[in-house]
Computed example of a mutant assay.
Amino acid sequence: MTDTGQNGHNPGRPPASRIRLVVSDMDGTILTPEKQVTRESIAAIQTLKKAGVPVCFVSSRPPGGMEMYFDALGVHTPYGALNGGTIFNADRTIRSRLSLDPEAVQDTLLMLKVHQIDAWLFRGHEWLVTNATGAYVEPEARAIRMTPTAVPSFNDYQQEVGKVTGASADYEALERQELEIGQLLQGRASVARSCKCFLDITPLNANKGYALRQLASFYNIPIEEVACIGDMNNDVPMLSIGGLSIAMGQAKPDVAAQAHFITASNSENGWAKAMEQFVLPRVAPLSDIAGKTVS
């Protein structure tokens, strides 16, 4: 396990000495490569819970794809779906929601079509596709236990879109489109890969940094006392502002550069090890927050 020292994005920001909230990515982070959770991670969450420190999750997944893990993890806290653009309360009701401008949706769909990249739309609890036999549709449906709705076109569905995903096995094409669509939508949307095969386009403020701020506000905790952990480009907005930022061992160098510390990979129980080594020694109970329960 490597200690990278001070944050590469802002070297003047040392790691927090006190942690009162943990905000975590899911895929590539607390989930193993087989999309499972380990006993060690569950035990670490229970230890944090006993110390009065809640664990909240933020993911590019739709809400159902996150909720399927919560009972096993033993968490019933607010969470951010669709890359943080929709914040849900623990009871699954929507706390806040951001949507893409329809023109940004149109521009994105055109770019993906030109480059022969499958497009998916997410609106609230809906997952819409035009190519139901696309290479990643069935695996993703299994992974998030959600069946997409096939539509002949997206023409009537460009309002209230929380996320557009480009799915392709051409990883280099997605990397190029991350840059090209990012430039096209500069100032209008957030554009980042959530894994090597998915490119996510979300509302401008719908990123994990926004979600971290929303969740910290819910608990009335300054972001300087929030630990965050992730592995991909779309985790950078929270890694670059969290009081204690941790990158997974398999994170690319530009992602790891945003973190105070690097833990082991998600195939080596890196999440649990990060909690044990970097977070738990810094926890502080939430006894001073009236009316909030940690579960």
Score class of each variant (00 low, 15 high):
Cys56Lys: 01
Lys35Glu: 13
Asp25Leu: 03
Val53Tyr: 00
Ile19Arg: 07
Ser59Gly: 10
Arg18Tyr: 15
Val22Trp: 02
Ser24Cys: 08
Ala51Phe: 04
Ala44Phe: 14
Ala51Ser: 09
Leu21Cys: 06
Thr29Cys: 08
Glu40Gly: 15
Lys50Gly: 07
Ser17Phe: 08
Ala44Ile: 12
Glu34Asn: 15
Pro54Asp: 08
Arg61Met: 06
Arg20Ser: 02
Lys35Gly: 10
Pro33Thr: 11
Ala43Ser: 14
Pro62Leu: 04
Ile42Tyr: 14
Ser24Lys: 02
Ser41Gln: 06
Ser59Trp: 02
Ala51Glu: 05
Lys50Ser: 13
Val22Phe: 04
Ala44Leu: 11
Arg18Cys: 15
Gln36Arg: 12
Ala44Trp: 07
Val37His: 07
Ser17Ile: 08
Lys49Cys: 11
Ala51Gly: 06
Cys56Tyr: 01
Ser41Cys: 10
Asp27Pro: 01
Ser59Val: 08
Val37Asn: 06
Leu48Cys: 12
Phe57Cys: 03
Glu34Asp: 13
Leu48Pro: 13
Leu31Glu: 05
Ala43Ile: 14
Phe57Asp: 01
Phe57Met: 06
Gly28Glu: 01
Lys49Asp: 10
Pro62Ala: 09
Ala51His: 05
Phe57Ala: 07
Ser41Leu: 09
Glu40Phe: 12
Val53Met: 00
Ile30Trp: 08
Thr32Glu: 08
Gln36Cys: 12
Pro54His: 05
Glu34Pro: 12
Pro54Asn: 10
Thr29Pro: 03
Ser17Pro: 09
Ile19Val: 14
Asp25Ile: 04
Pro54Gly: 11
Ala43Phe: 12
Ser17Val: 08
Cys56Val: 04
Lys49Glu: 11
Lys35Leu: 13
Glu40Pro: 13
Pro33Lys: 08
Ser24Pro: 05
Gln36Leu: 14
Arg20Phe: 01
Ser17Asn: 11
Thr32Asp: 06
Thr38Gly: 12
Arg39Thr: 15
Ser41Ala: 12
Val37Glu: 06
Glu40Arg: 13
Leu48Met: 15
Arg20Ile: 04
Ile30Asn: 06
Leu31Asn: 02
Thr32Leu: 06
Ile42Asn: 12
Pro62Val: 09
Pro63Glu: 09
Val37Ile: 12
Val55Thr: 13
Gly28Cys: 05
Val55Tyr: 05
Glu34Ala: 13
Gly52Leu: 00
Ile30Cys: 09
Ser60Val: 01
Cys56His: 05
Asp25Val: 03
Ser41Pro: 10
Met26Leu: 07
Gln46Ile: 13
Arg39Gly: 15
Ile42Phe: 10
Gln46Asp: 14
Pro63Met: 11
Asp27Ile: 00
Ile30Gly: 03
Ser41His: 07
Ala43Asp: 14
Val22Gln: 02
Pro54Cys: 09
Leu21Ile: 05
Phe57Asn: 03
Gly28Arg: 01
Thr32Gly: 02
Asp27Arg: 01
Val23Asn: 03
Lys49Ile: 13
Ser60Leu: 01
Ser60Thr: 02
Ser17Trp: 11
Arg39Cys: 14
Pro62Trp: 05
Lys50Leu: 08
Ile42Glu: 10
Ser60Ala: 07
Ile30His: 07
Ala51Pro: 04
Pro62Asp: 06
Glu40Cys: 15
Ser24Arg: 00
Leu31Gln: 03
Thr47Glu: 15
Lys50Phe: 05
Asp25Trp: 00
Glu40Gln: 15
Leu48Gly: 10
Ser41Trp: 02
Leu48Ile: 12
Val37Gln: 05
Arg39Val: 14
Ser17Thr: 10
Gly52Ser: 02
Gln46Lys: 11
Glu34Ile: 11
Ser60His: 01
Met26Phe: 04
Gly28Pro: 02
